[in-house]
Amino acid sequence: MNNKTMQLLKVAFPFTIPILAGYAFLGFALGVLMSANGFSPLITIIMSTIIYAGSGQFIAVNLLTAMFNPLGAFLLELMVNARHIFYGLSLLDTYKQSGKKRWYMIYGMTDETFSLNIAVKPPSYVDKNWFMLAITIMNQIYWVLATGLGAIFGSFVHFNTKGLEFVMTALFIVIFVEQWMKDKRHYSAVIGLGVAFVSLLLFGGKNFLVPAMIGIFALLTLFRKHMDISVANKNDGKEVARIE
């Protein structure tokens, strides 16, 4: 490694320490969970490399242990990760100046990496585009390592993992609470809860997702006039920082 790269890593690393802590914990738990469900560490590592999305991969454990339903898996992942569209819109201008580097930076745009890259100001002697690239790469390395180590640990060390799947539930609940406290109005969250719950009662656990997604989309479209005002003064892309 030449001096410039070393300097870049030295400057960027401290910014990523909170992400390192979060990814280490969640990634390790995800890895153990994957192994407990019979997946080899290699599968976990491949998924962390090509999917690289926290809640997306927790959901994937469920999708990969259910019946074969690629369309349902596709739609659910689309919905779960739809917030990335919003991040992308916020970073259009910033990433446009990053040349070819931006293609990897888009690929690795998780909640956490977004929250750093939208806000950081590197010292003047470091190129901002290389800096954002370094952050994106380091964060993905943490995730791949943490999930991989968890998976290897889980495949060697056998302990009673019953109930460990609650990590995913707890993660979603925490994000929900955070989102709830951040939102000025709760139409969208209530629509999500209500439609999903009714759909679960009507269609049952195996089939409720697609009707729920259609229902949520329809209601959000229908109530747009009502809710647009609340959206305007909510997320303007500066305060989104959470574990994915």
Partner: peptide, 9 residues
């Protein structure tokens, strides 16, 4: 918000 609510359910 709607998506995370769906995930909770």
């Amino acid at each position: 918000s709607a998506a995370i609510s769906l995930l909770v359910i």
